[in-house]
Design a binder for these strands. Structure first.
Lengths: 190, 190
DNA sequence: CTAGATTTTCAGTAATTACTGAAAATTCAA
DNA sequence: TTGAATTTTCAGTAATTACTGAAAATCTAG
């Protein structure tokens, strides 16, 4: 691996982290490399930099494409394909979250909804169903909220996040405003 | 596996899902079983229900304990240990999130912080460092926000989530209030 | 078209991870 | 204490997943 120590640490770390998620080490390393690279890389360059086989790189890139995490481009007078990671880290995060939802959350919700439709035959099943409903409701709420957030402008989202728990101050304020709502409305404060 | 079809679907699904995360199939199934079970189960009962070896169950339970996801208790006149999942699904979610932060986010942040301290020798390293900073800032912001949220009362959190993107209405309202702030303050609206 | 360049596929193998049974360690009632 | 009940450990094996090289497929300049 002929990378600077800085890049190498990063790449190795993401390889490790990748394997803690379902993503394999190779794929994690490839993405980390693309992420820090100044310019798009072709498959041979990646194979060279990370010292694994050309075919392994091909498979890794295919996997990353299926996650919609790479940009593909061509350079003038070069038939090879060049890969890079999107510039905007928020966009990357978003894509990752969307893709995970599609692959993991949606199937889980649909399994749980299916389970809700079964008429429980035993007491144990009645209990199991109630538990599944709790889980279903939690996941559904978190997911809906998350997709709501994703629709916001990055700037707004950042502002909200920056506020952290102080958003609750706004909530309290809203409640107080309600108490004296008539007056507010009259003065055009929505 | 002598479970009702309802429970079996759930258990098998979580086995699959587990293996998509770093968690192995066995562990996922054990947790799913505990989650839907009406009463705490001992290791033999789990091994029996899921049809794997006693030692495998022992390892699986140890893994779950390391994630702080199980409750351990004893029944009168029974030396065996009985395991169950916490009742509150929010609490489970929280624990999971905390534990993942400790294991995955914190080490990543510290690696990235370390990388910030290196004096870049090349142009490529300067770029890599800038990229790592972007990632660092995103992760740090998301994490801080998340831990802020965790400190809220579950009810407040639920209220906030239920509002989804409409929290931004509050933001807009706040901005408008600022414009006429003097008046508000005078009336004790904070 | 065609031939060189490039990418993908895939069967075989290597590496890793999961699982088991047997043995060791621990726990606790008597 | 002791010993039966219970849990944990761990070396060996099974199963799964990752990786490679070679061959096939695809692409494109001429």
């Amino acid at each position: 691996m002929n990378l600077s120590p800085l890049a190498q640490d990063f790449v190795l770390h993401f390889g490790e982290m990748g394997s803690r998620w379902g993503i394999n080490r190779t794929v994690g390393q490839i993405y980390a490399l693309l992420f820090v690279s100044q310019r798009p890389l072709n498959a041979d360059e990646i194979a060279e930099a990370l010292a694994f086989s050309r075919s392994n790189v091909s498979m890794g890139l295919k996997e990353l494409e299926s996650w919609r995490l790479t940009k593909l481009q061509h350079l003038p007078n070069d038939r090879r394909e060049y890969f890079s990671a999107p510039d905007d880290v928020w966009a990357i995060f978003r894509t990752l979250a969307e893709e995970r939802r599609k692959r993991e959350i949606d199937p889980t919700l649909s399994m749980l909804r299916g389970a809700m439709l079964v008429t429980p035959g035993t007491d144990a099943d009645r209990h199991a169903q109630a538990r599944m409903k709790q889980m279903h409701d939690l996941i559904e709420m978190a997911t809906m909220w998350f997709s709501d957030m994703q629709r916001l402008e990055p700037a707004t989202l950042k502002q909200l996040m920056g506020m952290g728990a102080t958003v609750t101050k706004l909530l309290e304020m809203k409640d107080k405003l309600k108490i004296v709502a008539g007056g507010k409305k009259a003065r055009g404060l929505k």
